[in-house]
Design a protein around this nucleic acid. Structure first.
Lengths: 238, 238
DNA sequence: GTCACGCTGTGAACTCATTCACAGTATAGC
DNA sequence: GCTATACTGTGAATGAGTTCACAGCGTGAC
């Protein structure tokens, strides 16, 4: 089974979108339906499900609960993942709140910050420790995953401390490229670069009539779904 | 010039990392130096600069201020971009604060929320309006870019309203796949999927010794830079 | 019972992105 | 001035990732 990051990302959205359907309304789904749900092609959906070894039937498509279970088996760690957050600033707190409310399956079991008035507080169920307690806390709670939401200059230092104490993968909100030992994984979320893309392609779409096709080609969602826009959407006026 | 989203993303990080260097310390840079700075290959850096039509000299490499200027010319809209935020919850406020502090070049000129106690307030320099004022405000301030940080169910409705009133590109923090008219651009930031990747590949790295190479191949940063880790890093103990 | 349909599973084709590899060239050293 | 060096610019090779296209099959209609 060749597992790429893109595949994991898509599996995650498959599951999320399947769960979002009214439960029980549809216990089976065709590749083209799931594809429409997540904005991919039916062929890719079929290939992905083939890749993870989940098979459907030509007659009824794929079994929804079974697929959700299969994805869970693949993605979810057996005991539930304990995650640490470093940096309880505005971004850090937003992350804690967001996951606490929307994705409680990700358990943030410890946060770390330098600020004395944050240490000791509990943010959305996650206790904030002093940075000095990091080593002890990480080892005691067997934390294997970390989220870095500190200023860029501190990122590498923090990352190094995390991986030295059992953390094996990081979500990095810093623009810094982190040096990691082999085997460790870093997923970067670069908000500035993302917004930069928005501004660039938005400007493009304005000038030329086009994102797609000709010359300066915009990607992804850009003009995907040329069909069925406009009038027959959930109306939003007034 | 064939411009892809990946290219824009890299250009953004090239610039950010060049600017982060002590100004004036280095007015020229070689492709392999820039590559090391951003975690890419020298060949890709050269290809990217070639793509945007920026040339260096074999003797001295690329001119740093010139390159920064060239990227700015390409990425930055002439008048500065006016951006709107919809959804001033925890995530929305964090976004406002983050960009206000770290990237003030992105000007958030209006925010929108349903909650009456937020309307009228100013968050990090960005005034919050009622959702009903969206149409007027967007048109009056000529806002062309939007950031969606509302609950998933509201995302499509909000997106539709935005693009109907002049917004041409969106940054979408919702897992919802937005239906857009052709020419409009959506950049998705899926925090749950990102964390899911972290958990998955972190777990992999634990079990097998490997992310790279064999069989279940992890991507990106995973074990990139096997060199120079460990002891000679900015020390972080105690 | 038989037929036609529409779906899955998948090898092969294709497209896009990255890396290789080297010709061309400007400098520094001798 | 001439040679060795180290880099850029870029066509070609490679390698992912995605889509095509179709064989195979279970189901519903008649």
């Amino acid at each position: 089974m060749k597992v790429t990051a893109r595949l994991i990302e898509r599996l995650s959205t498959y599951r999320r979108n399947l769960q979002r359907q009214i439960p029980g309304a549809k216990t089976r789904i065709y590749s083209h339906e799931l594809a429409a749900l997540v904005g991919e092609t039916p062929a890719l959906v079929r290939r992905d499900l083939m890749t993870i070894g989940f098979t459907g039937s030509p007659a009824h498509g794929y079994d929804v609960p079974g697929l959700i279970a299969k994805i869970a088996e693949l993605l979810d760690p057996p005991g539930g993942a304990g995650i640490a957050l470093v940096g309880v600033g505005a971004l850090g707190r937003a992350i804690l709140r967001y996951f606490h409310r929307v994705h409680p399956e990700f358990r943030f079991v410890a946060a770390f910050d330098t600020s004395p008035d944050k240490v000791g507080q509990v943010f959305d169920g996650c206790p904030c420790h002093a940075l000095d307690d990091m080593e002890a806390t990480l080892r005691q709670k067997l934390i294997a995953f970390g989220v870095i939401a500190v200023p860029a200059d501190a990122a590498q230092v923090v990352a190094t401390r995390l991986v030295r104490n059992g953390v094996r993968a990081l979500l990095n909100f810093t623009p810094e490229r982190l040096q990691m030992p082999p085997g460790a994984y870093v997923e970067d979320v670069d908000l500035a670069a993302s917004l930069e893309k928005v501004v660039f392609f938005g400007r493009l779409g304005a000038t030329h009539a086009a994102c797609p096709g000709a010359d300066m080609a915009g990607p992804e969602s850009c003009a995907a779904n040329q069909d069925a826009y406009a009038s027959d959407l959930p109306s939003a006026n007034s």
